[in-house]
Amino acid sequence: MRTHLITGAGSGIGAVVARRLQERGDSVVLLARDAGRAREIAAQHPGATTLVGDLAQPGRLSWALSKQALPERIDSIVHAAGVVDLGAVADLPATLWEQQLAVNLVGPAELTRLLLPLLRVARGRIVFVNSGAGLHAHAGWSAYAASKHGLRALADSLRAEEAEYGVRVTSVYPGRTATPMQERVHQQEGRDYDPSRFIAPESVATTVLTALDLPDDAALTDLTIRPAR
């Protein structure tokens, strides 16, 4: 049985990945931003272990994790948490830049750094659920796209640095996916939301599990997924 740490397991892609891993008998450890959210996520995923650590405050993650019992083994981290706030560069305040960069980039970098010793022992896998915005930036998406472009750079550097320890690093770039985040994006864009037009989170989760399950003689480095419609 393998142990996987997942962020963003409260909804969307992260929730589906956590459920699918549990259904096949793996152990999951779910990161929550606070104790209240940890209780909610634990209720959604009976049998899962929760840890509390706020990705929006990367500088406090080390302290937060030092106060909790970490699993003895971690075979993978799936970074599925994220936030998005749209706006033109002329209008977007610094606080929204800081929040998106923290949750989408600096927080994952710091969490990975803290758990690398365990991942090295397990010769584990790291999957970053990135975004199409990590490859192309459009008007109104500057802060979010910058955080996701940075996440791509983080993954590329990490892959090169950790190869000698057998740690595999994958970036997945989904197009628009039918998640609560996508619904919020549509609200910000002022458009009606029709989830049937977009990728199902289950499809992205299948890609994540493929990256986790590849034999040791192969590594999935970058994969782009787009809606079929």
Rank of each mutant, 00 (worst) to 15 (best):
Gln57Phe: 09
Ala160Cys: 08
Arg19Gly: 08
Gly53Cys: 07
Val78Met: 04
Asn130Thr: 08
Leu92Pro: 07
Leu151Glu: 07
Ser66Ala: 15
Gly134Ile: 03
Gly36Tyr: 00
Thr170Ile: 10
Pro117Thr: 07
Met1Glu: 04
Leu86Glu: 09
Arg159Phe: 07
Val78Asp: 00
Leu31Cys: 02
Arg120Tyr: 08
Ala109Phe: 14
Trp141Thr: 13
Gly150Asp: 09
Pro46Thr: 04
Ala80Leu: 05
Glu72Arg: 15
Ser157Leu: 08
Glu164Phe: 09
Gln57Thr: 15
Leu209Lys: 09
Thr221Glu: 13
Arg33Tyr: 00
Gln57Cys: 12
Leu31Asp: 00
Ala200Lys: 12
Ile41Gln: 01
Ala94Arg: 15
Val208Ala: 09
Ala155Asp: 02
Val167Gln: 03
Ser196Val: 10
Gly107Asn: 02
His4Val: 14
Asp213Gly: 10
Glu162Met: 14
Arg24Ile: 10
Ile199Phe: 04
Gly59Ile: 12
Ala143His: 05
Asp85Asn: 12
Leu116Arg: 06
Val89Gln: 11
Ser66His: 11
Ala205Gln: 02
Arg37Lys: 10
Gly8Leu: 01
Ala139Glu: 14
Ala200Tyr: 02
Ala69Thr: 15
Leu209Phe: 07
Glu110Met: 15
Gly175Tyr: 05
Pro71Thr: 03
Arg125Thr: 13
Phe128Asp: 10
Val208Phe: 04
Ala48Lys: 02
Thr221Asp: 13
Ala122Leu: 03
Ala145Asp: 09
Met1Asp: 02
Gly82Met: 02
Glu164Tyr: 10
Pro215Gln: 03
Ala153Arg: 11
Arg19Leu: 09
Leu209Tyr: 03
Tyr144Lys: 04
Val127Ile: 13
Arg125Lys: 12
Asp75Ser: 05
Ser62Pro: 05
Leu51Ile: 00
Pro117Lys: 05
Ala146Val: 10
Ala145Lys: 02
Ala228Ile: 14
Ala102Trp: 01
His138Asn: 14
Ala38Trp: 00
Leu55Gly: 01
Met181Pro: 00
Asp222Phe: 07
Gln99Lys: 13
Leu65Met: 08
Pro93Gln: 11
Ala200Arg: 12
Thr50Asn: 02
Thr207Ser: 13
Gly175Asp: 05
Val185Ser: 03
Val127Pro: 01
Asp156Ser: 09
Asp85Tyr: 11
Arg120Ile: 06
Pro108Ala: 07
Trp141Phe: 12
Ala32Met: 00
Asp213Cys: 10
Asp216Ser: 13
Gly166Tyr: 03
Arg2Gln: 11
Gly12Pro: 04
Leu220Thr: 07
Ala228Leu: 14
Met181Ala: 09
Leu65Asn: 05
Gln57Ala: 14
Ala94Asn: 13
Ala146Phe: 05
Tyr193Lys: 05
Val208Gln: 05
Thr49Pro: 01
Trp97Thr: 09
Gly14Gln: 01
Thr210Leu: 15
Gly166Ile: 05
Gly47Tyr: 06
Ile77Met: 07
Gly10Ala: 01
Lys67Met: 14
Gln99Thr: 11
Ala56Leu: 07
